[in-house]
Design a binder for these strands. Structure first.
Lengths: 198, 198, 198, 198
DNA sequence: CATGAATGAGAATTCATTCAT
DNA sequence: AATGAATGAATTCTCATTCAT
């Protein structure tokens, strides 16, 4: 009983995620993705029309996973700070474990990718940004957070998480994942939140 | 009286800085650098042995400029927070104007660059990290800053600045440079500093 | 009651004829033929061992159709010129409507086709050439036609028809099919025939 | 003293002409052209941006050569038929010797070539067609030629020459070039010209 | 010192063909 | 009999690097 079609597509996306996040779009080689997914290079193209399209699929799936996980967290009914801690913790863990894809963020996003695909990726990215911004606006309205520009604050959150997770992935032995989470949480909660909050 | 040797090298570094920061290491083309520097491609190789070496020279010079500028600021004798504000402001302005090179930071740093050169770049980078960490340790010893892991805090600072500056460079019309500076300063000072400080 | 085996083969040949004549052998894609024939790609290979074999079958059938039609015409008992007019007219009409296959004539006939199949196609082609030449020899013996080398005259006939029909197929609105027929007939009858003929 | 830049471009065009006319556009391989021109593959791309552009350059140059040669012939002051004989003879000789490129005529002209380049080629082709048509119109006005549609007559001329020259190139031993010329001339002069001409 | 034509290793992509179901 | 997912050899094109002038 050999693996199903969907299993093979999944295997490809997984391999692509690893390679793209390690090398970035342009430096990732279809040969390496194929080898890592244990399929022939042609199979990549049978399932995804081009490198760009495969990239888009990989990024989209990674970000959607993170957003889904955060939304699950959000449904829990906790005091704001604990809530926030949960979100930070969840995001970082997902980022580090399965979703290294998110690293493909500000960079590599411009030249050499089909316009069509570029638009798709920018859309998901914008969706993720908006998602973060909405949480921040909500916190500001409730009086939990400082009145800073939500877009810039959102970028700051992403920037911190991105930098520390990248560093952690490159040097997994220098710090523990808990230290990373606590550092991010401390800086962001103190940096963004007002003093008196539940 | 044609231009001197050093003027030509300077022209090349300047062109390289622009192209590398716009495209990243792998997407930057020697052809484009040569054209922008208004020299023949051979001249690039006459002055710098390889693309990697040119990249190293570019990054090194960019970071050293920033470090020099920050050190100038540090010599001024101001209260800590104003001091800190000055550093943030200086870094961001340099980053945005001439030193976009810093963007080549977490990314592009892995495959495809000669090991020898990679070591050189990592050295400058580490020097810059250490530079930031030292400032943070000093602040912690004086009791100005929270006792967070200096290395991780340093990465967080770089991460925030990198994310917001990249965003600003891509969308110069959405926010002013002052807004960027104030947001970064607010988050970082509140996020890193203790309450009672001079 | 699903369609019979022969019906399926017929559908494939028909689709192949269209695609081969539009694109030529090398630019025709098995994928497109399969899609146009509304069968799976595997079915193509189930019925014809290779692209070359399918091509051979397509060309053979197309030329045989034209030859049959001309032979029907030949049996009619008309004065030579009217006879000739009928042949030209029939050939052009067949060429333009169903048998665009003939366009694959001087070209595409060389590299990239299995030798075995190449021989087959050359055989049919030669058969067609001979068929034309025989008509010309007959006309010369009867004293109707100038004593030109029959092989070269035959190629000339095919060349004229091919050029005008190709042009007509590409620009169907510039001229009518009747104009094409009359031009070909006038040039060929005056060019090949002697003055005093029935 | 090694060869000049222009000599190398010329060598490439010459090699390309041979390969393109033997194989057609799509079946011609850049590898083979490079090998035949005794340059590296990269040199092809250094001089011509793409396969399509090289093709366009080859066709353009070939047709222009033929047109120049015919125009030289036209300046001579001979009776019409001798004039015509000279043109036919010149065209065929050029076609067969240096300008095999012309074979790339009705075929291969559609799919898989950049639109930009396609337009260029169509332009030269049209120029050549017009060139022939103009000669025919002149002959008709003078009363030398039958009143047939000039465009279709032009295509017929090209079709005959194309077919016979292709055949001659493939089977150089079956007929002499003189036989080819005489056959073409006889058919065309009788087919196109009126009886009483100087 | 400077140049830019030439190179060739390397990468993305295509597509006829196979074969397990 | 029929299918269509999987394959990999073959091909176009890129670009850092070299070197003769």
């Amino acid at each position: 009983m050999s693996e199903s079609h969907d299993q093979k597509k999944e295997k490809i996306i997984k391999a692509a995620g690893i390679v793209f996040s390690q090398k970035g779009f342009h430096q990732a080689k279809m040969d390496e993705i194929a080898e890592r997914a244990q399929v022939a290079k042609g199979t990549l193209y049978y399932n995804y029309a081009s490198k760009s399209k495969l990239f888009a699929a990989t990024v989209t799936q990674g970000l959607n996973q993170i957003m889904d996980a955060i939304e699950d967290k959000l449904e829990s009914d906790l005091p704001f700070l604990e809530h926030f801690h949960g979100i930070v913790s969840t995001t970082i863990r997902l980022y580090v474990t399965n979703g290294e894809v998110t690293r493909i963020w500000a960079n590599e996003m411009s030249s050499g990718i089909d316009d069509e695909v570029l638009v798709e990726i920018r859309t998901v990215r914008k969706k993720f940004n908006t998602f973060i911004e909405d949480r921040l606006k909500y916190g500001q309205e409730k009086g939990y957070l400082r009145p800073l520009p939500p877009r810039l604050s959102g970028m700051a959150i992403i920037g911190i998480i991105d930098a520390l997770c990248s560093h952690y992935l490159e040097n997994p032995d220098q710090d523990t994942i808990e230290e990373v989470i606590e550092t991010v949480f401390t800086i962001l909660s103190a940096g963004l939140a007002l003093t008196k909050i539940p």
